[in-house]
Amino acid sequence: MNEPFMLDLDTYLKRLGYSSAPPPTLATLGELQLRHSAEFPFETLSTMLHAPVHVDPPRVQDKLLRQGRGGYCFELNQLFLLLLQALGFEARGLTGRVVMGGPEDAQTARTHMLVLVTIEGVRYIADVGFGGMVPTGPLLLDSEAQQTTPHEPYRLSLADGTYTLRALVTGSWRAMYLFDLQAVAEIDYTVGSWYVSTHPDSPFLGQLVAARTGHRLRKTLNNGSFAIHRLGEPSERVQLRDVDAVLELLRDEFSIQVPEHPELRATIERLIASE
């Protein structure tokens, strides 16, 4: 029989800069979300190496809190959800369909996880796992007005029971993902993660993607292409040409402890050579 999962709350909070548990308020939620996206990077090293991605809480916690790694939405948002619940928030997971970069009416799979949080009867969306466009503040669910975050503005719209999240990027509103409020079971995360980590159509399979936020900036890595996007300024871009430069950047810019793997260097070399 499996032992019940115990969240290492003290270690988690210390990583986020807290010496004690903060109260379950809207201000706390906003600060947690902002700190989380800066501390725990989005990264796809496992799927790049065609390695299994486990989304059960004990292994997600070990990867993020002890191995010096980040992860993708089913890892980052699942542990974040457990953190919120441990702090006394009323919160549950949702799943979404990513449409960023494609038509809004595309029938994509449910390959994204986000969190619904209710505070004093008011519902908010929180998300710490949407890569280079992760919202860095909670978003009021029942409003279609433009909403500010520490980074880009976002807005939500509702049609036929489905919400669409859009972000204002370089002057235009771009759809990120669609979601609804249906109940989600643990198996839904397992199936969604399995699709993302194994299906030939997954954008992360065999690819290196990393993202992290900072004060008024975002850092992104796509194979060998590194960019720093500063609010209100032109993006800075660098094309990395050797494996050591990529590994150094993963360590220094994203604080990722790169795992040892026999195919690691060869895989990264192939990816940067193909660009």
Results as ranks from 00 to 15, higher is better:
Glu263Met: 09
Gln182Arg: 04
Ser157Pro: 12
Lys219Arg: 15
Leu181Phe: 15
Leu16His: 05
Leu82Ile: 02
Tyr177Arg: 09
Phe5Tyr: 14
His199Pro: 10
Leu141Ser: 09
Ile228Met: 09
Leu76Arg: 06
Leu208Met: 11
Pro23Phe: 06
Leu139Ile: 01
Leu9Thr: 06
Pro103Trp: 10
Tyr163Leu: 01
Ser274Arg: 14
His112Cys: 02
Tyr154Gln: 01
Leu250His: 00
Leu82Gln: 04
Trp173His: 03
Pro41Trp: 07
Gly71Lys: 03
Ala86Arg: 01
Arg241Tyr: 10
Ser37Thr: 14
Thr118Gly: 05
Val128Thr: 04
Asp242Thr: 02
Val55Trp: 00
Leu140Lys: 12
His50Gln: 09
Phe42Ile: 09
Leu26Gln: 09
Met48Thr: 05
Ala159Ser: 07
Leu45Ala: 00
Ala273Asp: 12
Asp242Tyr: 11
Gln61Glu: 15
Pro41Cys: 03
Arg230Gly: 11
Pro259Asn: 06
His50Glu: 15
Val238Trp: 15
Leu165Trp: 12
Gln61Phe: 10
Thr11Ile: 13
Asn222His: 13
Leu79Trp: 00
Glu263Phe: 03
Arg110Tyr: 14
Ser193Pro: 13
Leu7Gly: 06
Leu240Lys: 09
Gly224Arg: 05
Gly121Gln: 08
Leu116Tyr: 05
Ser19Thr: 14
Asp10Pro: 00
Ile256Thr: 03
Ser157Leu: 15
Asp252Arg: 10
Pro23Arg: 04
Gly192Ala: 06
Asp242Phe: 08
Gln61Asn: 05
Glu104Lys: 07
His151Lys: 08
Leu83Ile: 04
Asp56Gly: 04
Arg218Ala: 00
Tyr189Gly: 01
His215Ile: 01
Thr198Gln: 14
Ser274Asn: 03
Arg212Pro: 10
Glu269Phe: 07
His50Ser: 14
Arg241Phe: 07
Gly68His: 14
Arg174His: 15
Ser157Ala: 07
Ile268Thr: 00
Pro203Cys: 01
Gln257Lys: 07
Leu83Ser: 02
Glu144Ala: 13
Gly171Gln: 14
Phe254Thr: 06
Glu269Gly: 07
Tyr154Lys: 03
Gly101His: 14
Phe89Ser: 05
Thr47Glu: 13
Arg174Met: 15
Thr213Gln: 12
Asp244Phe: 03
His199Val: 00
Ala91Tyr: 05
Tyr154His: 11
Leu49Glu: 04
Pro153Ser: 09
Gln67Pro: 00
Ala126Trp: 05
Leu32Ser: 07
Val55Met: 13
His261Met: 08
Ser37Gly: 10
Glu233Val: 01
Leu26Asp: 15
His112Asp: 08
Asp62Lys: 09
Pro103Gln: 12
Leu140Ser: 06
Ala38Ile: 04
Pro135Tyr: 10
Pro262Phe: 13
Gly70Tyr: 11
Glu120Thr: 03
Gln257Pro: 03
Thr44Ser: 13
Asp62Met: 13
